[in-house]
Amino acid sequence: MNEDKVRNGNRRSLLSGPYALWIAGFTILPLIVIMKYALTDKTGAFTTANLTAIFTDPINRKALWLSLKIAVGTTLICILLSYPMVLAMKHLGLGKKGFSLFIIILPMWMNFILRVLAWQMILSNNGLLNLLLTTLGFEPVRIANTETAIMIGSVYDYLPYMMLPIFTAIMEINEDLIEAAKDLGAGGFTVFRKVIFPLSIPGLLSGFVMVFVPSMTSFVIADILGGGKLQLIGNIIEQEFTTANNWPAGSGLSVMLMLLVLISTAFTMRRKTEGRESALW
């Protein structure tokens, strides 16, 4: 009987075959290829220079630093925007809640490039923002092709990915728990600090991974809103592969970037959240 069970189990595990093939062909194999390129120079000899280039080359260093700034800033702003919004949505009726959720998701249905291009129009020196400011009698601002512009674009694009998991986590909190905290003497902010926030951490961590990682590695937003003048590490990798045709250098940077992202997310995820893991770990 036990043997039957084992055999059954084995047969069922065959169902994961297509997925395993997919992973092997499109994740593991490319990783190995990238690793091979990263560890060899143009002649094919072994080297670690491609890996260390991210710290040794001043251009790379500057790009990495800018990427980190943008990623950390984007993530923080997304968190700061998400909580008040979600708390405001919490007490809406079922219909209004669904509608507000729909509004948040709506931009995600539009083409990514289009959204970024729209922001370029808005933020450019003769754009909508400055038109609005000058008609209202304010001084125009010059934020086109700056870090601020990249940050605005990133926040706009990644905000739903932060808001949705936090929304889900907070909606799961039983209203009784909040009443119990009030009953024990907790005012509004204490309830948030002691009950709502700690219980929303799994959502926050999912949101963190989904916002921090793409805003750290993306290059499209920086390309369009940075006007090609500001380079994120993603832009440099892109150029190594396309214009410079230096695959080993690009691979080395990718591998290091991946390691850095892994380390920073693993560091955040170390905190075990009351038996419930966040969506990605």
Binding site: D176, E179, A181
Partner: peptide
């Protein structure tokens, strides 16, 4: 006043 709720309502964290 303090309340004992039907569903316990203890903080899981």
């Amino acid at each position: 006043v303090n309340t004992v709720f039907q569903k316990y309502s203890l903080c899981p964290h």
